[in-house]
């Protein structure tokens, strides 16, 4: 019975293959036999089209940012620099932008610093159980999603939450964490550390173990080995982690909205309000473009100084 089915499946497969080959052979012979180089361009067309949504969208946004906002008709197709003037001269917007960049920088530094020992131990430990534990504790939060974890932090940091209950036992508190920058930093760090570990670990994996052994046999201790050998060689991973964590943090919405309770707004929260509370698309476009410009400058700066790191798809040296 099952053999019969198997046989039928095989037959079907052969028939499909034959059809496909026949179809292929109607094409000019040299197309598939020597595979001209332009075929490469054809292959990436679907991917290019997919990403073109964002590319075209960025241009569209730049266009929107110089259109006129009208409270009644919403968008008037007239050129104006009013949105940019509004953005650059309003102190509140300014402050939120500065907070976004400042917090993103802080989170990036902390997340990368905390990810380094974790990634190192995960890659280098000889203890299989420990490695599995580290991997599980890395991927379970990574796969849990931002909203569920933000909810978890609200339960932990809230007025009657885990932290305050714990402090209450010692007669301290309650301290306010929801709606403060500290709460937001804690929440964001927990979201970003897994990303940083995932970007750094491959770079550490690529480091030749014997270099570390050489350093230690030449008399350097663990810390020195880590600082002078591992850290410089892990630079591509650190670059990748920096870029990913910085862009993600500077565009974060959920943690400021939930753990920050609307008191620690990031630029994303302002963009959302401009879109849905004020229906001011031109202003939202202005904020968006500014965010892209600022984060691109920082990302390009990292590209220039350390290279694309683990972000580059050619990583691993494939171009013969």
């Amino acid at each position: 019975m099952s053999i019969d089915n198997n046989q039928r499946l095989q037959n079907l497969k052969w028939r499909v293959m034959d059809r496909l080959i026949a179809a292929k052979e109607t094409l000019p012979r040299e197309w598939y036999q020597s595979q001209p180089n332009w075929l490469g361009y054809v292959l990436i067309v679907p991917g290019v089209l997919l990403v073109s949504f964002l590319f075209v969208g960025l241009l569209l946004l730049a266009g929107y940012s110089v259109l006129t906002f009208d409270p009644i008709e919403f968008i008037v197709y007239e050129f104006t620099l009013e949105n940019w003037r509004n953005f650059l001269t309003t102190e509140a917007y300014y402050r939120i932008f500065a907070r976004t960049v400042g917090m993103a920088t802080l989170i990036t530094v902390l997340a990368v610093a905390m990810a380094l020992p974790y990634a190192y131990l995960t890659v280098r430990t000889e203890n299989a159980v420990l490695r599995k534990l580290l991997l599980v504790c890395l991927f379970v939060p990574f796969f849990t999603g931002v909203i569920v974890r933000a909810y978890g932090w609200m339960i932990i940091l809230g007025q009657n939450g885990l932290v305050n209950t714990g402090l209450g036992v010692f007669g301290i508190g309650p301290i306010r964490l929801i709606g403060t920058e500290h709460g937001v930093i804690i929440g964001l760090l927990q979201i970003m550390i897994p990303f940083a570990i995932i970007m750094i670990a491959p770079a550490i994996q690529n480091i030749d173990r014997s270099l570390e052994l050489a350093a230690s046999s030449l008399g350097s201790n663990r810390l020195e080995t880590f600082w002078y050998v591992v850290l410089p060689l892990a630079a591509p991973g650190i670059a990748g982690a920096t870029i990913v964590v910085f862009t993600l943090t500077s565009a974060t919405y959920a943690i400021p909205a939930l753990v920050g309770g609307g008191r620690v707004d990031f630029i994303s929260n302002v963009i959302y309000r401009a879109l849905f509370n004020m229906a001011n698309y031109p202003l939202a476009a202005t904020f968006s473009i500014s965010l892209v410009v600022v984060s691109s400058i920082i990302v390009l700066g990292i590209f220039r100084s350390i290279g694309t790191g683990t972000l580059g798809v050619t990583e691993g040296g494939t171009h013969e």
Partner: peptide, 28 residues
């Protein structure tokens, strides 16, 4: 394949990561 501007293509394919998510949302 030996594509010209392959570096440019690589940066292009990183756009979904380098464009902040909130901006991707607004665009879409």
């Amino acid at each position: 394949y030996d594509l010209r501007f392959s570096n440019l293509f690589q940066i292009y394919f990183l756009l979904p990561f380098t464009v902040p998510l909130v901006v991707s949302g607004v665009i879409l």
